[in-house]
Write a protein that binds this DNA or RNA. Structure first.
Ligand SMILES: [Mn+2]
Ligand SMILES: [Mn+2]
Ligand SMILES: [Zn+2]
Ligand SMILES: [Zn+2]
Lengths: 142, 142
DNA sequence: ACAAAAAAAGCAACAATGTTGCAAAATAAT
DNA sequence: ATTATTTTGCAACATTGTTGCTTTTTTTGT
């Protein structure tokens, strides 16, 4: 597991440092997505806030994690599982945000749908965020 | 036009004040969506920053405007055209964000698609944001 | 294993954004 | 017109994000 982390960093031409190992570890041990605040709390006790910002930034650039837009003005981050690479993401799955537990999940198997746009508009990327109740929060009988 | 603004405020049980008239006017004279920063710049010169926050908040609550999530951590706001009411939005259109001019548009005629979710997930609301080149920025010949 | 070079982390200072409580002012109701 | 209600502006503060620079750590090459 810890070797896996080092390998991932090496594969992306990143030097192995404490903060990168720690933060990447957080993502690997996490089902859903993480908001910046979560990461600061969990990792930031050991590291400077600025380091967390810079680590997340470089992880996004390298295609290790991707961002998920949400309506509450706090970006979430999640691991890329679509073989993204430096400067080129191709995450095309949708995201689910539970209004109950407030977790955000990548639904990696659900591909973003095609959207027919009005004449003149050209699409390069589609983000779909579905809100509702997640499988863990589903009411027992419903 | 100015009567229209007052009527909208009255219809929503809001008292008629300078800041509300001004900010609602901005939205009515605007094709795309407005980021908080835009509104502060255009209206905030006359009004306190706090007033802008509170005005936007109450407009959202009343169903006069809705928010649009974006990946750059700056919520955009746009007029509701779907007869939204207090506490109950039913904007079901998609949004388009131009990577060139950075405008955000409501594509009011394009309804959000149905999404087939994995077992256990229940959807209550769907947000779709398409990125690309808008009709105004389209390259001449393409 | 060591020294030199390169990269990252930490620190401090700052900018931008968002929140809250309260007194003064404006608006609405009587 | 007076009173009651609502909204505003202000001040103070909290949170979030950015930048430049020095020190420390990691990597590279020997
Ligand atoms: Mn994802
Ligand atoms: Mn819209
Ligand atoms: Zn849940
Ligand atoms: Zn454009």
């Amino acid at each position: 597991m810890h070797e896996e982390i080092k390998d991932m960093l090496k594969k992306n031409n990143l030097s192995i440092t404490g903060s990168r190992e720690k933060i990447l570890g957080l993502f690997l041990n996490q089902e859903g997505a993480l908001a910046h605040g979560d990461i600061e709390k969990k990792a930031g006790e050991k590291f400077d806030r600025v380091t967390v910002y810079r680590t997340l930034q470089i992880f996004v650039e390298k295609g290790i994690i991707h961002t998920i837009p949400t309506a509450d003005n706090s970006i979430r981050y999640a691991l890329c599982k679509d073989n993204c690479s430096e400067g080129h993401h191709h995450d095309q799955h949708i995201h689910f945000q539970c209004t109950n537990c407030h977790n955000t999940y990548c639904l990696d198997d659900i591909v973003t749908p095609d959207i027919k746009l009005p004449k003149g508009y050209v699409s390069s990327h589609i983000e779909v965020v579905v809100e509702g109740t997640c499988k863990n929060c589903k009411s027992p009988v419903a």
